[in-house]
Amino acid sequence: MRIPASLLAGTLAGLFALGGCAATGPATPASIDTLMRDYSGDVPGAVVLVLRDGQPLVRRGYGLADMDAGTPATPGTNFRLASVSKQFTAAAIVLLAQDGKLSLDDPVRKWLPSLPASADPITLRHLLTHGSGLIDYEDLMAPDATEQVHDIDVLHMLEKEDRLYFEPGTSYRYSNGAYALLALIVGKASGQDFATFVRERIFKPLGMDNTVAYEKGISTVSNRAYGHSLVDGKWVRTDQSSTSAVLGDGGIYSSIDDLAKWDAALYDDRLLSDAMRSDAFSVQNPIHDEVDVDGYGYGWRIHGETMWHSGETMGFRNVIVRWPQEHFTVIVLTNRNDPEPYRLAMKIADLYR
C-alpha cells in the first residue's frame, strides 16, 4: 500500500519538527527516558525513532556521538549500521532482478567464476537467505589481522576454499561473506560499483541524502558517530576493525531521519514491486534454533508478522523492528559495543502497541 503524498509530506515535516516524544496511551517522555537512562550523559549514546503510520511518535537522541569532541547524538547523527546494511544490499540485488539484469536463481559462479567448483550449486537466492553454506570469511583471517579487508578480498579468500558447511539450500547459517559477494555482483550486473549503485538507485531517489556506503578516502560521513567499547570500566573509541571496510555485509552509515524515509518506501512500489516485497518480507529459509526468528527473507529476519534485523560490529549495536500490518516501526542505533538493543526496542514498542 502506498503512503499518500500528503501523509508522507506530513511525516517528513514531523520528523524535523519533533524533537522529543508525542506519546499516546501509557507512554510518556519520562518512560522513554527511563528506558534510555544508560545511554544518557557523557557516555556513548543512542538515537530512537518510533513511527506509526509514518508519523514520528519518538525521535530522540541520548548521550554522545563522539566522546572525544563531546558531540551529542541527535536524530541527524549517522551511525555505522553494521548488518542492518544487509537490507540495502538485498534491495540492490532485487532492483537488478526487476531490471532484468540478473535472476535470483542465477548460479553465483555466473557472476563470480573464480569461485571453486564447490560453489556450483549456490544461487543468488541462497546468498540472500544465508542458505549457501559458504565458509565464514572471518574464520579465514589471521586472529591478529589489523589491515582492513574489502569485499574483493572476501572473494579472494573464498576462492581458496573448495568446501562448504552444507549442501546449498538444505540449511541455514548466517553468512557475512555471502553479502560481500552480493555487493560484488551488484557491481558486475549494474556496471557501477556497489557504493555508487545504492547511492543512485536507493538513497538519492528516497532523499536519504546523508546515507552512504562508506569508503575511506573516497566518501565521507557527515555528522558521524564513532564507535566505543567499555574497557576496564572506561569508554574508549573502538570505531574500526579489520572487517569494517567490507560494504555488502555492514558498511552503510545512516541516521534515523534517513531511515524513516527508507521505512516509508517499504510500504509501496516506489523501489520494489509488490511481488518482490512479498518475497523479501516472508520466510525464504526457515530457522529452527533462534529465538524470535522463524526464518530469513531477503535481508530481513521474519518472526510472525514482525520483520527485523540487528547489526553488531566494532563499537556499534543497532536494530530495526517493523510491524508492517500495523504501520509501526522502532529503530534504535547506538555507538557502543554492548548491549545489543533488540530487547530494548521491544520494550519501547510495548509502550505504544
Rank of each mutant, 00 (worst) to 15 (best):
S229D: 08
V236H: 12
I218T: 13
D239W: 05
D232E: 15
T238C: 13
S229F: 06
A213N: 02
R237P: 02
R237I: 02
S241A: 15
N223K: 11
V236R: 13
R224T: 06
S241P: 09
S241E: 08
S241W: 02
M208W: 09
G227Y: 02
P205V: 03
G217I: 05
K216L: 06
S219I: 11
S229A: 14
I202C: 04
S241H: 09
N210C: 03
G227D: 00
S229I: 08
V236T: 15
V221S: 00
S241C: 13
V231S: 14
S241M: 07
V212A: 01
A213Q: 02
S222N: 12
A225F: 01
N210H: 14
G227T: 07
G207F: 05
G227V: 10
P205E: 06
K216N: 04
S242H: 14
Q240H: 15
E200L: 10
V236L: 15
G217N: 07
T220Q: 13
I202Y: 08
V236W: 08
K204I: 07
T238P: 07
E200P: 06
E215T: 13
Q240C: 03
W235G: 02
V236M: 13
V236C: 12
G233P: 03
T238D: 15
G233V: 07
G233D: 05
I202T: 06
R237V: 05
S229P: 00
S219W: 11
D232L: 09
S222R: 15
T238K: 12
S229G: 04
D232Q: 12
G233Y: 00
M208G: 01
G207T: 08
S229M: 11
T211P: 10
Y214R: 05
R237K: 08
T211M: 08
W235K: 09
Y226T: 10
V212T: 06
